[in-house]
């Protein structure tokens, strides 16, 4: 008798346990991540209000907010964001185009790889910022040199990611294509492209991250607008709130673009069995 009671109890409780935690978890998981930064910001705000610190070098969140609001009201913010976004957009586009073209050719065609890859690897060893003086001499101080620097930063991860992905396509899957007598273009379209896609998307996201990194470097070298200009301007005029405001906006836009890229590619990668998705479902 005791046995049956013990067996029945968990069975009866199980459905309820299964039903509620996912909904709760979906809400609490992002909140959990926000807990630490929010409480730190709140603590700092209180510390400044209480007079424990004057908050001049490290402005409290409320002051950062006011700065952002002021910039937004004057239309400055839109101008700076638009400038930075267009630089990242064009640089990312060019870098992805070049990285995809060369990466595709070198991944697929071993002769091209032997010819070109050593040079690219050697160029990769140069810290990209080291190109800045040369780009300024070649391309001038204005947009072209900035876009070129961003494109260089984006190019390498995309190139490396794509060649690596093509080279690691499972030979056994390629053999399936051979058995079904796919022509060269059909093999690329129906086997190589889908097989390479997950790694390529990762490469794009890494490239985008580097694009955001390099736009700051590019805007440090003499820009009159852009979020990087806001940083330099805030440093030179002693406005830490403006620096933190620019950093916060960088973080928000950077994360948003990455998120957009992830959403745009998600339908293509539905088939993937990833650890993250499994733990997300559980």
């Amino acid at each position: 008798m005791a046995m049956t009671v013990e067996l029945q109890a968990p069975v009866a409780a199980a459905p309820q346990q299964n039903a509620s935690p996912p909904r709760l978890a979906r809400l609490t998981r992002p909140l959990l991540g926000l807990l630490l930064p929010l409480s730190l910001a709140l603590a700092w705000e209180l510390a400044v209000r209480a007079g424990w610190s004057n908050g001049r070098l490290v402005p409290p969140p409320s002051k950062v907010f006011t700065t952002i609001a002021e910039l937004a009201r004057s239309g400055e913010l839109t101008r700076h964001i638009a400038a930075t976004l267009s630089r990242v957009g064009i640089g990312f586009g060019l870098g992805v185009a070049a990285g995809t073209l060369l990466g595709g050719i070198c991944g697929y065609w071993s002769f091209a790889r032997r010819l070109v890859d050593p040079t690219i690897q050697a160029l990769r060893a140069i810290p990209s910022i080291a190109w800045v003086p040369l780009f300024i001499l070649w391309l001038g101080i204005f947009e072209t040199s900035k876009v070129a620097l961003i494109a260089v930063g984006v190019f390498f991860p995309v190139y490396l990611g794509l060649t690596g992905a093509i080279l690691s396509v499972d030979r056994k899957i390629v053999e399936v294509g051979r058995v079904f007598r796919l022509s060269g273009p059909a093999m690329i379209r129906r086997i190589l492209l889908p097989a390479v896609l997950p790694a390529y998307v990762v490469a794009l996201r890494v490239g985008l991250g580097l694009g955001w990194m390099f736009v700051v470097a590019a805007e440090f070298m003499g820009a009159s607008e852009g979020l990087g200009y806001l940083l330099i301007d805030g440093q030179q005029l002693g406005k830490p709130a403006q620096i933190v405001a620019a950093i916060v906006i960088f973080a928000i836009i950077g994360k948003a673009t990455d998120w957009l890229l992830e959403i745009a590619t998600a339908p293509l990668l539905r088939w993937q069995d990833s650890f993250a998705r499994q733990s997300g479902a559980a």
Binding site: K172, I173, E175, V176, R178, V179, F180, R181, R190, I191, P194, A195, L197, W271, Q272, D273
Partner: peptide, 27 residues
């Protein structure tokens, strides 16, 4: 590889990005 000759390997070698039906219709 010849149209009249099919092969089944030790591993199923299904294409992970195609549904079961699309895998069967692949050829």
């Amino acid at each position: 590889p010849h149209a009249k000759v099919g092969i089944i390997f030790q591993e199923p070698r299904l294409l992970p990005w195609l549904s079961v039906a699309d895998n069967i219709g692949f050829g």
